[in-house]
Design a protein around this nucleic acid. Structure first.
Lengths: 218, 218, 218, 218
DNA sequence: GATGAATGAGGGTTCATTCAT
DNA sequence: TATGAATGAACCCTCATTCAT
């Protein structure tokens, strides 16, 4: 299955607009995402990455310094993408607004960047050895959300949920659309490269989460 | 991280009770689960499996015929385990009972067999090439659940949800506790090999799902 | 192709009449002939020999001391068989009689013991490293025949041929029915395990050789 | 024994004249011929081929894709060489001319390409599994020769021989000089790498065949 | 920049043989 | 005798990387 998503689309766009070196780096990035997300760090081969990028192996090594560095670059780009995307809105203090925005953004990221999302999953599956520096950040960022939710609960604006588990459940449901993309396609009766219609998913997911939090969806 | 779960526990138990060949086969199984679940099929090495099982590579090949066969055996054992575990109760026609039992069984499987669960995840991540025969079964089994849920909805016993998406969301949330075990541990402030206390998770998850379906939890 | 010849036939017979150890040694011999004749010494595997003989590898090694010794035993049994069979009749001094008997015996051996014959061929193909002791014997035995033929020529009882080359040509033509058995079957339109009707071959071959020597066939 | 023949000679020549890649491919070809012809497909090792070609094993695999492909390439090059060489002259309808040319060409091929010739022999000895596509071609080409010979016989221009067996006997006698090269050297009292003087062999062989066909040699 | 070539380690697997039992 | 198991070498091949050019 080729990536029928924003990763490839933006790649294609860049291929047309950028020049030379940039173009190649972009192709390498795409190829690396495809291979690492399918086979994990150990299982991916530089040969496959090179071929997918239309390069020979020595050519690839001209642009990257090592397989590991290429991998970690991608991994950090996921982490950065997430820390940008997965903040609670600062503009609003309304649980319904904040939570539904959060769900939507998380799902958008998964559907727009399934490859990158899956790379993070393979890393976690493999034990998360490269994530040492990430965990404290993630924990802190989670704790902030937990604190906010707990305040809402204390203020009686939300059902009494375990905030940490709530966040995990949202994570699980949204990440699922990236990690289990193949199964989702099968279950929805879609061809492997047919794009998923995300509107109904966003709707269902939001209602589900809000109701689960004791909030009435619109 | 060694498996802090029923897989290892039962393995250890068997190691003490079973004899010779059985013991070794069991050690190989455990080792293979550990390696495949961490690195996927391509990324796992028979050397690592052999060492983890306390064998040399040629010794390993005395007991198994090939890496691929060993892998597929494990994969099928997940699929069989699932088709056993993830049926809706036939005894009950009560949405609340059926759904909360389903959620609990699904979560139990993930927490009791995280390694096997993750092997399935790596397979799906890799494109699910070995799952050709499985999809039709999975689709059919899902459809039966969807039909039942839709009947409940038609009978006004449940909120009007998209049954397929509901099942996916349950899948995502429960599977998360296997695939993202490492992250879950970090977030809950547990040591890597500390067991997860599943009671609160079951409670939260069940309430969450029932409320999300418009059913009042007990 | 299983051997449709005296080797197998006598093997089967022995299997019924001999007991235990003898029977097994016989099965090993047959199996070894089949494997060595197909793949040569290096290419044959003790596993294949053991399986063909209905034994396990350790069982096989209980009866033989090494692959090499088993091979050399067979090789020497060819050499002995040949030194027995391929003498010129001492009873007759008639070129026609002697040569036609020789041709017939040589062909009979090839058709009755194709496996053994082919083992010798694989050995020669491989450089004949194990044949160091054999060559002097063969040379001497050949020289005797050459001397006799030269006498016949000197006496005007035969056309003036190069005796050595004559013997080689006979060797080539008869050995061909063992080494190229597969091709012979194809060319004669026979199924792989169908026996070759040797009468016409003997007839043609004899006439051919006698005419080639300037002798009138009967 | 190194190849004391045109294969090696031309190889050596090319080694001096060709450049880089060509030179290496040539060395690989020579090495592969030497190893496969000695030990057959199963018995030959890529390590030995690599060493003989002055390469390491990974280096070898830079130039070839697999042992099997290398082998089949050589095998097909024999088959092609033969289908070129072993046609009956179209220019002549004279049995004597046609047959003696055929004998000479067949012998030349065997003496010029003993290694390649022997590879075909090892393949036939091993059962000819890779020759499925070749047999029909060979049968057809043989049948054409048989038809011609039978016409000559019908026209009274040749002794009444079994044409198929005649062709086999020619095959056996000529192929013998490749397959049994080692024995031929021993019998003729030549050192292993001393070239065979082919003139007397051609002369004897031709007379022998013509007389065997009831034709008077010149 | 880009290419052909090389390299040493390691991939999965089979080898002939030996050794307890 | 016969079996399950082990062993160390060797099998064919691919790996990530480097180096001339």
């Amino acid at each position: 299955m080729t990536e029928p998503d924003a990763e490839a689309a933006s790649g294609a766009l860049l291929n047309r607009t950028k020049q030379g070196r940039e173009r190649i780096l972009c192709a390498i990035r795409e190829a690396a995402i495809a291979e690492f997300s399918r086979h994990g760090f150990k299982g991916a081969s530089t040969k496959a990455i090179a071929e997918r990028a239309g390069l020979t192996k020595p050519q690839l090594h001209y642009y990257i310094s090592s397989k590991e560095e290429l991998y970690e670059e991608l991994l950090y780009s996921v982490l950065n993408g997430w820390s940008d995307a997965f903040t609670f809105d600062a503009d609003s203090d309304d649980p319904k607004t904040v939570l539904s925005n959060y769900v939507r953004k998380k799902l958008d990221y998964a559907l727009d960047n399934p490859g990158l999302s899956r790379i993070f999953t393979t890393e976690v599956l493999g034990g998360g050895r490269s994530l040492g520096k990430y965990w404290p950040v993630a924990v802190k960022s989670t704790q902030q959300k937990v604190d906010l939710i707990n305040r809402w609960i204390a203020e009686g604006r939300m059902r009494q949920v375990d905030a940490k588990l709530l966040l995990m459940q949202i994570w699980g449901m949204t990440q699922h659309y990236a990690d289990y993309g193949v199964q989702v396609h099968v279950m929805l009766g879609l061809a492997p490269d047919e794009p998923i219609d995300r509107a109904p998913i966003v709707r269902e997911l939001t209602s589900f989460v809000l109701l689960g939090c004791g909030l009435a969806p619109d």
